[in-house]
């Protein structure tokens, strides 16, 4: 990717994340994940290697994930001394994250009741707000046109039984 580093308005790194090497965080995430799945599979029968129970494969894989997590933490800690900016986690655009997730949730919640046209319109509108809104009119018109196109393609064109109009019943 040839993208430039983000400008100030786009992402603010928290001081904490900047201080910790990426690999340490990455490894800890894996360890956490492995621990969770170990916990979640502990009621499943492990069985023996000749007759593997449902818990056998997931738990062995979880164990391996945990080991790799520890290894990655170790790598991160040894790299620490010569840490470069690239070794720390880049910042996050919270606005983009929030709006995109909001848009998806809105779609999931509304498509059955509002129909594809309206629900799609709202989703696109919400998603568009993930970046600073420069031209409100353009976004509104664009959302409407795009929603109509999507409805035309999926509801009418492909013959999926996706209702286009609100279902109030």
């Amino acid at each position: 990717m040839t993208h430039r580093p983000a400008g100030k308005t786009w992402a603010k790194k928290s001081a904490l994340l900047q201080a910790v090497p990426t690999d340490v965080v990455a490894g800890l995430v894996l360890v956490l994940f492995a621990g969770l799945s170990m916990l979640a599979t502990q009621d499943l029968a492990f069985g023996s290697s000749a007759r593997m129970g449902p818990g056998y494969f997931p738990r062995i894989v979880s164990g391996l994930i945990g080991l790799f997590g520890i290894a990655i933490v170790a790598i991160g800690l040894t790299k620490r001394r010569r840490a470069r900016p690239a070794d720390t986690i880049p910042g996050v655009s919270w606005r983009a994250l929030l709006m995109i997730m909001l848009a998806m949730t809105f779609f999931a919640a509304s498509v059955e009741h509002l129909g594809l046209l309206l629900s799609g319109f709202g989703t696109i509108l919400l998603a568009s707000l993930a970046v600073p809104c420069v031209r409100p009119l353009e976004i509104a018109v664009f959302s409407l046109v795009l929603a109509a196109m999507v409805t035309a393609i999926f509801s009418w064109g492909l013959g999926l039984s996706l209702p286009a109009w609100p279902n109030l019943g």
Partner: peptide, 10 residues
């Protein structure tokens, strides 16, 4: 990106 997103959602 909104176009890609709505396509994925539908």
């Amino acid at each position: 990106f909104p176009a890609i997103l709505i396509f994925c959602a539908v």
